[in-house]
């Protein structure tokens, strides 16, 4: 089972020495599909690997390093554009891990730039970015209005010269979602990095990762997000006894205890993450989540269509109340029927 083997290798790089040729082929394809190939490359760096495998991973490592450089440059571009409007710029997800020098950023693929700004500064931030050359991606009035009314972020903006997207968040879940994270606390507790940038506090960073993985979206690309959580927990909990109580208190601030608990349990099961004992016992639906996270074969194809469909339905159920969901799906269906491309489901 390639995705399971991938998880094993990430947690225990020494296991790489036992793999045969076919297993390697499957693991590398699964790692590419899950956007974990750069992470895997960094984890296995220095091991005596078969020549072909070493070559593929060497390329992945170079790609990840270049991706990291470009992501940090993009953060700097946003900082310059937002100077005087939003200071410091709070980075989220992959760019935050890289900028803060966290283990979770080692080899991680980084897509869009995600930043968090106070809601009352949102329109000024948008104007400043447009002024600096960013442009709207979604030309459709329904999509645009939907974002502005219900989403936790501005409609995505792209910088055409650098071909990079920015997601400007004012909170970390859609306003229609059942959980209500406290964006003001996220911002108040953010940790400055110097150079006009900041990241969420350690416990908030874990809560955000857990919310992103289990409270929003259909878990596609979820293996990478759970790996982030493993790395963050190991790094933050090491030598800090106050970390676990703080994490639990912050999870409560954001109404996110359930998703945080699930993240801890699944990270423990899959990556042997050291967590307090109460989270070492599997929860009722954990096996089902695990099945979804590992639904990838040795050709990089998604498997288990029924499980995936169930999680897709679940993602919409979590995201909005039923009547609103029905209306949204109806409008989207009509847009698609009239020859418009279907909305892309992105892993990021």
């Amino acid at each position: 089972m390639p995705a399971r083997t991938l998880a094993t290798l990430l947690a225990d790089p020494g296991a790489a020495l036992l793999l045969n040729r076919n297993a390697w082929t499957g693991v590398l394809a699964a790692a590419r599909a899950e956007q974990l190939i750069g992470t895997l490359a960094m984890r296995l760096d220095g091991l005596a690997l078969p020549q072909r495998v070493a070559a593929v991973l060497g390329d992945a490592r170079a790609t990840a390093l270049e991706g990291r450089r470009q992501a940090l440059w993009e953060a700097e571009m946003a900082r310059r554009a937002l100077a005087g409007v939003v200071e410091p710029v709070i980075l989220l997800k992959g760019t935050a891990f890289a900028a803060a020098g966290l283990d979770a950023g080692q080899g991680r693929s980084i897509g869009d730039l995600d930043i968090l700004v106070p809601r009352q500064r949102l329109s000024q931030a948008e104007a400043a970015l447009i002024d600096a050359g960013w442009m709207w991606v979604k030309p459709d009035p329904y999509d645009d209005a939907y974002y502005r009314k219900w989403m936790h972020e501005l409609p995505p903006l792209i910088h055409p010269e650098r071909d990079r997207m920015i997601d400007v968040h004012h909170t970390i879940l859609p306003l229609t979602a059942r959980m209500k994270p406290d964006a003001a606390r996220l911002i108040a507790r953010a940790v400055p990095l110097g150079g006009g940038l900041a990241v969420l506090s350690p416990a908030d960073m874990v809560v955000h990762a857990a919310i992103h993985l289990f409270g929003d979206g259909d878990l596609s690309g979820g293996l990478r997000n759970l790996w982030d959580i493993d790395r963050l927990l190991r790094e933050f909990a090491e030598g800090d006894e106050a970390f676990w109580p703080t994490l639990w208190a912050f999870a409560a601030d954001h109404e996110a205890q359930r998703v945080v608990a699930r993240a801890l349990r699944l990270a423990h099961v899959l990556f042997a993450t050291p967590v307090p004992e109460m989270w070492t016992r599997a929860g009722a639906a954990d096996a089902w989540y695990l099945q979804r996270l590992l639904a990838r074969d040795g050709w990089g194809r998604e498997t288990r269509p029924a499980t995936r469909l169930a999680f897709y339905v679940r993602s919409h159920w979590l995201r909005m109340p039923p009547a609103m969901l029905a209306r949204h799906l109806w409008i989207k269906w009509r847009m698609n029927r009239d020859g418009r491309p279907p909305p892309q489901q992105e892993g990021q």
Binding site: R21, W24, T25, L28, A29, P50, R52, V53, A55, V56, W299, G300, R301
Partner: peptide, 12 residues
């Protein structure tokens, strides 16, 4: 070549 490939292509 049946070794670990650089790239996979799928026709589906």
């Amino acid at each position: 070549d049946d070794g670990v490939p650089d790239f996979s292509v799928r026709l589906t």
